[in-house]
Design a protein around this nucleic acid. Structure first.
Lengths: 350, 350
DNA sequence: CGATGACATGACATCGATGTCATAACGGGT
DNA sequence: ACCCGTTATGACATCGATGTCATGTCATCG
């Protein structure tokens, strides 16, 4: 590899002057500059980040840890491909900010995380972002205090700054919308109770009912998805119970869009029409499903892209002025996506 | 950041001895080693890759350029999410080989590629991989000869080593399978003619017919997808033409699985049953579609994951011994995925 | 006309790890 | 007792870029 010395010799100047041209941090005579630039061209010189870093102690690197790339292998994820969108958001912000993003994938085993972090630290990244595939609690190895980290779509016990989807507020907004459109008998088929989102969303569901003065009906709320058991009959049984009720619901909220997809199939096989006989709503706005289904699915968006952007922005602030500790960026809510899977008795609103 | 000097002082030895412990390249007395390791623990020492690299001139980095992350934004891509699978393959290989993969995304604008390459070169990557989202020709900025590059899912005029899907062989294998199962009147709705894959696959289609002694029928081959026009009526018109033929086809091959998805809808809306009235085959094995459709779709897999693995392996060879120039890894073919969307008159084969 | 400051450039030390060479202690073979 | 090889360690130079400080050349000002 050619070095700054080769360029200097070629141009007949000192290395330091070449450095000045590279960094533009001191005036250089036009002719000298031209000679140096010509020499750089001729020799195909590319500065070494390693050497540069040694002096300045600034790597310009941001480390990103995710499983987004490896776990896309599963054809349909319970929550879509969320982390990929988060990564996109992060990336967009970083591309604009001039930092170089180093993406490392866990390759489907969280055992690799400590190793990845170690590698990042060796490269002296200026900050780290950890992205989870769904809202959950994580446990990370110790990270030196001088390397800020932001968690996206997850949180930990240490209280590292984190950016999270507002599951409670989201479900509340969705149910509130259903109520505004005239629904009062609203069923809710939840995700697995072990998921963080499940509890929060159930809370949002209750709050929306409460705000509208609708009594909470126990028989309308059931678990529709069980972790690890993809082909379980849980959903089928739940639907049968609901349809068999004396007063069946006018709309069924699903824990996510994939559940709605399966619900469509189950309803169709029983001759129940959507939305004429019963309305259906999802969660996530996983567009491959929500927009492709017939009828298109009413759902609420999980603001993944924004999650990434906000996380990146927050990290950027942490890096820029370590003095002022910005408060936790907090919760992000996505918009309700109103589509034809829900009947409205209040068409003016549509 | 603590340095090797801090550790040396803490342990009461010379920096060089610490270095020896780090690299294990010379014997160190047990007690000395312990003292050093304790000191490293205590100070939270992490070696600096930059400094290490300066001496050794080995970065251990591989640069990966892709658009996989940014263009996942579109809900359904014409070809699925292929590059993501390719990236997975690359990543798996690299994780095993001990190299660190730096992933850079083009952020949907190929203008950024030169900048990304420059950044990689500054980091002194030992090799580059460029991943395209579909089989195509690309144009890359000049790359220094001492930095090997491998193209995955694309090729260029310079003749850089590349790994490509065998479109001709794939389509041929699929059509041959259809023929073995008793089909002789085989329609083929192609992708846009501007795509590299289209020509190759058409060739494979012809070859399979030829091998079976079936005459090529012009009226059975049409373009079913036009670049940029997602909602065009092209496919609808093509289907109408086919169904209106005196002797309609017994099976329709689609340019990809997404086209098959749309074809299902069009056929269903006309009361044509799949596969009882007409069989359908896709291309890609984009599992979200192929496995979710009812009936599940017969298709042929584009071996994306393997494409990535082979590309990574090839690059690895190029890096390891630059002397021996390995021949181009060439074309990769995926398996035919036989599912219920195609009727077979030869059930023994299923 | 000499002092002053802006401009333009170079010599040299430095960042952190490691390769090279030197040194010292020790054990065993002759 | 002497030489030699092995083990264990340190001093010092080096990788490539840049910060610091010094130097030299102008033009300008009092």
């Amino acid at each position: 590899m050619t070095t700054i010395y080769d360029v200097a010799k070629e141009a007949g100047v000192s290395p330091k002057t070449v450095s000045r041209v590279l960094n533009g941090d001191a005036p250089v005579r036009k002719e000298t500059r031209d000679a140096i630039e010509t020499a750089m061209q001729k020799l195909g010189y590319v500065p070494s980040n390693a050497a540069r870093m040694m002096r300045s102690n600034k790597s310009g690197l941001i480390g990103l840890i995710t499983g987004a790339i490896s776990h896309g292998l599963e054809p349909i994820e319970p929550e879509g491909l969320p982390d990929l969108f988060i990564v996109q958001g992060i990336q967009q912000f970083m591309a604009e900010s001039g930092k170089t993003l180093m993406i490392a994938d866990t390759n489907n085993s969280s055992d690799r995380v400590p190793h990845l972090i170690r590698t990042f630290l060796q490269h002296r990244v200026e900050g780290l972002i950890y992205v989870a595939d769904h809202h959950k609690k994580v446990e990370l190895p110790a990270i030196p205090a001088d390397c800020p980290i932001v968690l996206a779509n997850c949180f930990d016990e240490e209280g590292h700054p984190c950016v999270l989807p507002d599951d409670r507020g989201g479900q509340k907004a969705l149910v509130a919308a259903l109520i505004r459109h005239g629904h009062r008998r609203i069923s809710y088929l939840t995700l697995d109770n072990a998921l963080v989102a499940t509890g929060l969303r159930a809370q949002g569901y209750r709050e929306a009912l409460e705000d509208a003065g609708i009594a909470y009906a126990d028989e309308l709320v059931m678990m529709g998805y069980e972790e690890g058991k993809k082909d379980s009959q849980l959903l089928v049984r739940a639907v049968e119970k609901l349809l068999g009720l004396e007063e069946p619901p006018s709309v069924i909220c699903c824990g996510n869009d994939e559940m709605a997809l399966r619900l469509y199939g189950i309803l169709r096989s029983r001759g129940v029409r959507v939305p004429e006989d019963i309305s259906v709503a999802g969660y996530d706005n996983y567009r491959v499903i929500a927009e492709t289904l017939f009828p298109p699915l009413t759902t609420i968006e999980l603001p993944y892209f924004k999650l990434g952007q906000v996380a990146a922005e927050h990290l950027f602030k942490l890096i820029s002025n370590e003095m002022e500790v910005p408060e936790n960026p907090g919760l992000l809510k996505g918009p309700v996506c109103w589509r034809d899977s829900v009947i409205s008795s209040n068409p003016a609103l549509v």
